[in-house]
C-alpha cells in the first residue's frame, strides 16, 4: 500500500513537473487535481484514523497561537509601515500599512464571531 502510494505520488509529481517546465499549465493543474482526488480516495478507502480528539485539541491550540502571532506581527508591521510611510512620504507604504491594520481588525472580528458561534453551538442555550 505504502509503495503504491509513493509510486503514484512520484508519477504525479513527474507529470506536474513536466507540465510546469514545458509551460502547459493545464497539465500541471490536472496533475494536482488528480493527486488531490487520489489522496482523498485512498484516505477514505484505507479507513485509517487521521484525526481524533487529541489532534483536534492540538489544532485548536495551534490555530489560536497562529491567530495571536499573526495579529501581533501584522499589527506591528502595519504600524511600522504607516510610520515609515509618513516619515519618508511614501504613500504606497502607508496605504499598505493601513490595509494591514484593517486585516488585523478583520482577523479579530472574525475570531470573535466564530468564537461566539461555537460558544452558542456548544452552549446550553438550546
Amino acid at each position: 500500500m505504502r509503495r503504491a502510494k509513493i509510486l503514484v505520488t512520484s508519477f504525479l509529481c513527474a507529470i506536474v513537473a513536466v507540465g510546469a517546465t514545458s509551460g502547459k499549465m493545464y497539465l500541471a493543474l490536472a496533475g494536482i487535481v488528480i493527486g488531490a482526488l487520489f489522496m482523498a480516495l485512498v484516505r477514505r478507502r484505507s479507513g485509517e484514523v487521521h484525526t481524533d480528539e487529541r489532534v483536534e485539541a492540538l489544532g485548536g491550540r495551534a490555530a489560536r497561537a497562529t491567530f495571536v502571532i499573526m495579529s501581533v506581527f501584522l499589527g506591528l508591521l502595519s504600524l511600522a509601515f504607516i510610520f515609515i510611510g509618513r516619515n519618508t512620504g511614501d504613500g504606497g507604504l502607508e496605504a499598505l500599512g493601513t490595509v494591514f491594520s484593517y486585516i488585523v481588525c478583520l482577523n479579530c472580528a472574525v475570531y470573535s464571531i466564530t468564537f461566539k458561534y461555537f460558544d452558542r453551538e456548544h452552549g446550553g442555550e438550546y
Binding site: A95, V99, V110, I113, T114, E121
Partner: peptide, 30 residues
C-alpha cells in the same frame, strides 16, 4: 442552530465586504 450559523456566516460576509470597501477606499486615497 441554523439561525446561529446564519448569523455567523452573515456577520463574516458583512465584515469581508466592509474590509474590501475600506481597503479599496484607502487605495483610492493613495
Amino acid at each position: 442552530r441554523l439561525k446561529n450559523l446564519g448569523f455567523c456566516v452573515a456577520g463574516i460576509g458583512f465584515l469581508m465586504l466592509l474590509f474590501m470597501f475600506f481597503a479599496t477606499a484607502s487605495w483610492i486615497g493613495y
